[in-house]
Amino acid sequence: MAHAGGITAHEHAGAGEPGEGHDATRRDFLYLAATALGAVGAAAAVWPFIHSMNPAADVLALSTTDVDLGPVAEGQAITVVWRGKPIFVRHRGKQEIEELAKTDIATLPDPQADAKRVKKPEWLIMVGVCTHLGCVPLGQKPTDSRGEFGGWFCPCHGSHYDGSGRIRKGPAPKNLAVPPYEFTTDSTIRIG
């Protein structure tokens, strides 16, 4: 539609037509109607192109991941993949849960109680993507640095998360996200 909308009423006024009164009105109406309809068509034609970049049906269909929690001992963490992203699963101990419950929520950059971030307190399930600019924080492996708050530490720009995945220090604006999941049995979850 290289020329779409090229003919507008005022541009055409100088085209050398002696149209007056009723005829000129009819002419202007024609130009406007054609231009408007052409614009609508061009806009409608753009959508399929844009929408083709959205996730395709097969991508959307792959949106659940089943995880067996059985083998994960207390204090251990595993990383699974959901929608191409790392999901952190940590089996927390009683003491750690109690410590986290005592945190003064009001002092947090993104205030949220630990209890609100879990379905079962011993299982913390989070998207392992730093809310700053998308790096994967350290803290899953026993040898990793866990940052100043004993949770996770993002090495890219120095964000510190606590044992509930809440942002405590550094540039990240939000807590690590909790994905939608449900317990299908006592020891298995389905993410997504």
């Binding site: 399929p48 192109f49 929408h51 395709a56 097969d58």
Partner: peptide, 26 residues
């Protein structure tokens, strides 16, 4: 949405036809 590889080219075109939004139209 196309993959220029002998193992995937045909499949990627069929994926365009079936799964990509308006892929068949494009």
């Amino acid at each position: 949405n196309y993959t220029p590889h002998v193992d995937h080219a045909f499949d990627s075109v069929e994926r365009i036809m079936r799964d990509v939004n308006y892929g068949w139209m494009l």
